[in-house]
């Protein structure tokens, strides 16, 4: 049991680091790619990394899902689950809105590349 706790301490940081990696990846896609659908995919990666950021600290090792039953005594924290549950559905709603905008941009400019859209417009 002692050894397991040591391992838990070392591995315990991995969740945070992968979350940070996902945030970086999402940010990188949003900033570097000029294609708008790719940008939206990057935005959803950014968003899902936040799910991880919220849910993973609420997990208790040896705990179970927060559904009260006589068979269990340790439960993971239910509050982040609630917050993220709502965030997911709002996420798909905003994704749909973003895609609708991309479709309209494609109809107006004939391209979903940000560079083409900017170069076709006279900014003065």
């Amino acid at each position: 049991m002692e050894g397991l706790n040591e391992l838990a301490f070392v591995l315990g940081g991995v969740n945070h680091w992968i979350t940070v990696f996902l945030i970086m990846a999402g940010l990188y896609i949003i900033v570097s790619r000029s294609n708008m659908i790719k940008k939206l995919v990057g935005l959803s990666i950014f968003q899902t990394s936040v799910y991880l950021l919220y849910v993973s600290p609420g997990k208790i090792i040896g705990g179970t899902a927060p559904i009260i039953s006589d068979d269990f005594t340790v439960y993971s924290n239910p509050l982040p689950h609630v917050l993220i549950l709502t965030a997911i559905v709002v996420g798909v709603a905003t994704l749909a809105l973003g895609l609708a905008l991309v479709i309209r941009i494609n109809e107006a400019y004939g391209s979903i590349e940000e560079d083409d859209v900017y170069s076709g417009e006279d900014w003065n």
Binding site: A65, I67, L85, T86, I88, V89
Partner: peptide, 12 residues
């Protein structure tokens, strides 16, 4: 109320 689920999941 008793297991995983609810309006959001069912709706989707």
């Amino acid at each position: 109320d008793f297991g995983p689920g609810g309006g959001f999941q069912a709706g989707v």
